[in-house]
Design a binder for these strands. Structure first.
Lengths: 323, 323
DNA sequence: TTGTACGCGTTATCAA
DNA sequence: TTGATAACGCGTACAA
């Protein structure tokens, strides 16, 4: 039942377990376990014998068995709404920062905006008994999220606000973001303002618009904000970039004829033909904070849920300028 | 040992197992198992009684126990080199296409270009007994990759070419890609050509350049290709975009003064100020194919390793045009 | 159709 | 310091 590969040592086809190692090393099963988990309780000579046996047999710990025994795993998961959206990958980086420090592994799943995929992943992750799940849900009001939490797997909502008494959430104050953008434009003397944004059924888009309107009105300006609704849900700044290209193509000068403020401040914003002013969200920090909250909930019995709201920041660049 | 949440049914603090369900439903343990795995062998009435008990207790299958019993899991993993690079997320989409169809879950891990992180993930994934691992490695010659395969976990190398007799690989013919770009430029009458690319120690960059040089020479042109090496490893098209911005800023007209061909054809390429001609790689297909190979290796005893090389394609846009 | 007993690989406990 | 044994939760024979 073994095959030989070139001059590599023989490897059993079916991977070896502690038992096999014990036999090969001529020790008992418990000793092997001790070598793995409490190396100092094993004499040096025995230990090295065991370690050599492990190397020879190509021993790989069986995480399923460990988990079964321990009752919990050492992984957390982030169910992303859209893995090809730089916003979420940046959030994920923040999550990884924390996970790595805590020696947890992070598994990323991509729901790709499809609720059934999100559900499938939530199910699997529960079954895997992950320590907790970070999720940017398709629908923050989805009862399935509460169910998961109710079944004992901590859930933290990212970039949305969920049910405050079943999970923590970490989001950005988009109302404020909308205000920042408008205040900036009004400060620069603009009076005719349009809001170009994604589908209104998204809470964040609504919030941005609400903030925008509020700021516009309290500026004493007359008239209102023209709303142009787009269909696709993309990082707002990508949309902004497209808008900019169109302007260039149509001979509209930015910022002379039209000033533009983006939302999201992706890397390209600064590198655009006309560097874009943008409302920047602390994406990585969002991820880090969410991960901290998750870990706290998973390990601290005193944990209480909290809703963290981050403040966005306006970065002024060439696409807006005093007239 | 139970707590009551509002008007939700009580949930045991420690999640219920088949045993608890059996007791609650007044049936034996085996029957519960049958309800889960062979529902047709259980009378309708019994089954519904069991199902109700499961719902009431908030029963969640324990995947660790299942795996331990079954000896294998039903997940595959993709260890990405850089999750914030659209190239890899597109590849991941392709992988997901296949995984979903086969009812496998895909866990994505991000090595973030750090070899120690890659190793950590490879270890964990082996321990989880995933069916197989797709990986775009930091270093395709890394012996660790062979070790994983040797220990019995199938490994498929993505966007790199690895050790042909230990794993399959799926990559793009970058030599051809380089040729395509140069042929295109030469066809348009260009004679002075520069190659702007990432670090030369990357096989792909070397290949692109080799192809470029070859095409240039066989075109009968005299002189050579000027090489400008960049440090960062990014999608070539992002770099190209930056180059374009610089040209615009410096008053260099594209394509009149300078024609540009990108590499990678990311979404922005077409939407740039001057839409970029680009060498396009079949990214999603790369992912799909890699996943198919992995699954074949994991389940087909007759599997033989193969190295698939995809052909890139030149997409001509405004950044190159007949002079 | 339903119930019982055993084993998967690991770790913890206790005895030697 | 080391060794034997019992759990962890589930699936699957086999017996009723």
């Amino acid at each position: 039942m073994t095959r030989v590969l070139d001059d590599q040592p023989a490897i059993p086809v079916r991977s070896a377990g502690v038992k096999d190692v014990a036999v090969a090393a001529g020790v008992s099963l418990g000793t092997v376990s001790n070598v793995l988990n409490k190396p100092d309780r094993v004499s040096v000579s025995t230990r090295s014998r065991v370690e050599q046996a492990m190397a020879e047999l190509g021993f790989v710990r069986n995480e399923s068995a460990r988990q079964l025994r321990a009752g919990r795993s050492s992984t957390v998961a982030y169910v992303m709404l859209d893995a090809s959206n730089p916003f979420f990958t940046d959030v994920a980086q923040g999550v990884e920062d924390v996970a790595e420090r805590r020696d947890l592994s992070l598994f990323m799943c991509n729901s790709d905006n499809r609720i059934e995929r999100e559900h499938a992943y939530l199910d699997r992750l529960q079954q895997q008994r992950v320590q907790g799940i970070l999720v940017t849900p398709v629908d923050p009001t989805d009862p399935a999220l509460r169910e998961v939490a109710r079944h004992g797997t901590p859930v933290v909502i990212v970039d949305r606000v969920g049910d405050a008494d079943t999970h923590c959430s970490v989001a950005v104050d988009d109302i404020l973001g909308g205000q920042l953008a408008i205040d900036h434009l009004v400060d620069l003397g603009h009076e005719r303002i349009a809001f170009v944004g994604g589908p209104q059924h998204l809470g964040q888009v609504r919030d941005q618009l609400a903030g925008a309107r509020e700021a516009f009105e309290s500026s004493g300006s007359t008239g209102g904000v023209v709303v142009i609704e787009t269909e696709a849900l993309t990082v707002a700044d990508l949309l902004t970039l497209g808008l900019l290209q169109q302007c260039v193509g149509l001979g509209i000068r930015v910022p002379e004829d039209l000033a533009i403020v983006g939302y999201g401040d992706i890397d390209f914003a600064a590198a655009a033909a006309v560097p874009l002013s943008s409302v920047r969200q602390p994406r990585r920090n969002l991820g880090r904070t969410a991960a901290e909250l998750l870990i706290d909930e998973a390990s601290n019995p005193e944990h209480t849920h909290q809703q963290v709201l981050f403040t966005p920041e306006l970065v002024a660049r060439a696409s807006t300028r005093r007239r």
